[in-house]
């Protein structure tokens, strides 16, 4: 049995003249025990999809199941067995760390002791502050507490909507390490993120943009499908180089990536000769040109432009 399935999910919101599609014919399936990433910018439809799967929102059309239960007819069964951490920080700011945890444990018909093993590692990090109000915690700590609260009833499927947004790189890395440990316990995790670099950490990912899934595959599968030569170029004047490359009609796209530009040429052209020509024309110094493998962000942008 699949942990999550979605078939042709459509969700629209009425707008001024026409309806706005938050989700447009979305279909995918998540296996048991998988970490499944939903990757896309704000407004892509990630939260709508999460709310449909967590039975908080009804889709216009389409069918979805979680743990084998239908999201519309069996919503009560789903609510008994999933953990959900919404995008906004969803704890009671005026309750202490411990009071929050106790509250969520009790309303999910369990106690902190019963599933303590599951949250032990995470909870130990915030335990020194257990009498502090949740509103007084820093971003990283809140996020850990929210995760504890979502886990306390040992859910079979865990939904995390942008758990790492606004969180620094170190805390993000720690957070992902926690997710691996949960995966090892057999929990299926569906996680949304706007950070492309987190895609590589998932077993499989769905890239989403404007309510449509651009691609659903393993991270390697997605980068493997990038079937054009990709060049990394750098020189002394990166701004000038960018303009020169963008101006050339043979260049399909040129995006800055940190210290280098990633360049793709149109059609079937390999582009190496063309690249040398453009760089040569501009009198650049310290030029380095390398053929590189694409990353998820390259693929996402290429898919966005299609």
């Amino acid at each position: 049995m699949k942990a999550i399935t979605a078939e042709n999910i459509v969700k629209s919101y009425p707008a001024k003249k026409t309806a706005v599609y938050a989700l447009n014919n979305v279909s995918f399936a998540v296996d048991q025990g998988e970490i499944f990433g939903l990757i896309g910018p704000d407004g892509a439809g990630k939260t709508s999809l999460f709310r449909i799967l967590t039975t908080l929102l009804l889709a216009d059309t389409g069918k979805a199941t979680v743990d084998g239960f239908d999201v519309i007819n069996d919503y009560q069964n789903i609510r008994n067995r999933i953990g959900y951490m919404p995008g906004r920080f969803s704890l009671y700011q005026d309750l202490s760390v411990q009071e929050n945890l106790e509250f969520f444990a009790t309303i999910f018909n369990t106690s902190i002791q019963e599933n303590y093993a599951l949250i032990k590692e995470i909870y130990e990090q915030i335990e020194p502050f257990k009498t502090r109000r949740a509103g007084q915690l820093s971003g990283g700590m809140k996020q850990k507490l929210a995760l504890c609260c979502a886990l306390i009833h040992k859910p079979s499927v865990l939904f995390l909507d942008e758990p790492t947004t606004g969180v620094d790189a170190v805390s993000r890395k720690e957070f992902w390490e926690m997710l691996y440990r949960l995966k090892a316990q057999g929990i299926t995790i569906m996680v949304a993120t706007p950070y492309m670099d987190e895609a590589g950490r998932c077993d499989r990912v769905a890239l989403i943009q404007k309510g449509k899934l651009l691609s659903v595959d393993t991270p390697n599968g997605i980068t493997g499908a990038f079937n054009k030569p990709l060049w990394s170029v750098s020189a002394n004047n990166m701004f000038g180089l960018m303009n020169d490359l963008k101006k050339d009609p043979a260049v399909e796209s040129c995006f800055p990536f940190g210290q280098v530009h990633h360049v793709v040429f149109k059609g079937r052209e390999n582009g190496r000769a063309k690249l040398d020509e453009i760089v040569g024309r501009g009198n650049y110094n310290q030029v380095t040109i390398k053929a590189i493998k694409p990353n998820i962000e390259d693929c996402f942008m290429a898919l966005m432009r299609e």
Binding site: P41, D42, G166, M196, E297, R305
Partner: peptide, 10 residues
């Protein structure tokens, strides 16, 4: 640029 898509970010 938090939450902005990669192309717009650039």
């Amino acid at each position: 640029t938090g939450g902005v898509d990669p192309i717009t970010r650039r």
